[in-house]
Amino acid sequence: MILKVLRVQGSSLTPDFADGDYVVVSALPLLFRRPRPGQVIVFHQPGYGQLIKRIASIEPCGKLFVLGSGGGSIDSRTFGPVERRQVEGVVVWGIHRQRK
């Protein structure tokens, strides 16, 4: 996937990404460099579908521990670390709705 546009649904990444924002996602950066903490990724999580979360840390086995920003976020604390093959891409551009 070179580039893909997705609409963010939900509030677990606020204030960085809010419900209704758009993100441009690409797998290209991951071809040249491993994922690193701080990056926002889109991945497929069985039972949840396509999720967007921030990488909090990389586990010794290479799995990614992802978190949302809010206390109620459903993330690796619920479903465990994410495998590299589940990752669809990295957010390379965020298009934010004008905040009121």
Partner: peptide
């Protein structure tokens, strides 16, 4: 497509 940012509070 939609990328879900799941949480259980306001959304």
């Amino acid at each position: 497509e939609v990328a879900r940012a799941h949480c259980d509070i306001p959304c």
